[in-house]
Nucleic acid binder design. Sequence first.
DNA 1: GTCTATAGAGAGATAGAC
DNA 2: GTCTATCTCTCTATAGAC
Lengths: 177, 177
Amino acid sequence: MTDTRTKILDLAESLTQTRGFNGFSYIDLAEEIGIKTASVHYYFKVKDDLAAALVERVQTTHAAGFREIEEGTSCPKKRLEAVIAYFQGYVAEAKFCLCGMMAAELQSVSPRVARLVEAYFNSFHAWLSRQFKEAGHKDAKLQALGFLSALEGSVLLARLRRDPKIVHDALKGYLKA
Amino acid sequence: MTDTRTKILDLAESLTQTRGFNGFSYIDLAEEIGIKTASVHYYFKVKDDLAAALVERVQTTHAAGFREIEEGTSCPKKRLEAVIAYFQGYVAEAKFCLCGMMAAELQSVSPRVARLVEAYFNSFHAWLSRQFKEAGHKDAKLQALGFLSALEGSVLLARLRRDPKIVHDALKGYLKA
DNA sequence: GTCTATAGAGAGATAGAC
DNA sequence: GTCTATCTCTCTATAGAC
C-alpha cells in the first residue's frame, strides 16, 4: 500500500543504480508500476526534478542510517564495517551507489543535481572523518578520503565480478589497528 | 588529417567519459565532426559496435602505456605514480575512466561489452599486482585491488570537486614503504 | 565513403476530460 | 490523482543515389 510517489522513487532509484539515470525513461517507470507517463509527470514535472528528489532522498536516508550506526555501536571500526556491509548489499543486487552513478554521469545532469551530489559526498566524507578521528588517526580526513574512494570503486568492481566480498577485501587496510 | 573512424572514436570516447555512453547520440557525433549520422553507421553499424570498439581501443592503448611505464622506470612505486598522474589527467578534463563508466552503466550495455570491460579490469588488476609483488608485498593482489578501487573511486570524487589532487591524496597510503 | 531521405520507434512533456 | 490524446522532438537504423 505504498503511495504512487514512493513507488516511482523506489523504481527510479533501482533503475538509476543499475542502468544509470540516462538508462531509463518515464515509460519504463509507468509500465512497471501500472500507470501512465502523464501520472509520472504529475509527481515529477520534468525528469530533472526526479533526479533531484532521488539524491535528496538518499541523502536523508543515509544521514539517518549513519545516526543509527553511531547509536548501535561505539567502536568506530565496527561502524565502518557496518557501512561496508550496507554497500555490499548494493553489489548483491547488482547495483551501484546512486550518487556514485550520478557523479559518473555528471555532465549530463543539471548543475542543481550536481550540487546535491556534491553535498551528499561532503556529508559522507565528514562522517567518515569523524569515525577515523575517533579511532585515533591523526590524518582522519585523508583516511576518510581513501576509504570513500575505495568504497565507491570497489562497489563498481565487485558488481562487475558479481562478488560482494571484493568490497570488503578492497577496504581491509582501513579496518585493522 | 586523422581519418573519420578515429575522429568518431575520439569524440565518442570523450563523450562517454563525460556524459556516459547513454548520454550522447549518433547525431552528437555527426554534428561535431561535420558528417551525417549515416556515415557514423557506416563505421559502427549499431551503437553496441561502437561501445565494443571503444573498450577494445582503451584496452590496447593502456596495455601499451603500461609497457612504456615499465620500460621507463624500474621502481614499482614510481610506476604507480605514473598511473596516478595519467588518471589525474582525466580529472583535469572533467572526465571519468571510460571502462569505469561502462562498469557503472553495466546493465545497459550488451553482455559482449560487459565481458570486454571485465577483461580490461582483469588486465589492469594483474598489472598492478605485479608492481606490488615487485615492491615486496606479500599480499600483492589485495594491495592491487585496494589501489584499483581507490583509483576509480577517487577519479569520480576528484572530478566532482574539480580537484585532480584528490586522486593522489586518496592513494597516498599505497605509495610509501 | 558520404550523402539524402526516411522509416519506425521511443523520448519528454502538456492540455484537458473525468 | 489518473487518464486519453497528442505534440514535438530525438533516436537508432536502413535503403539507395552519387
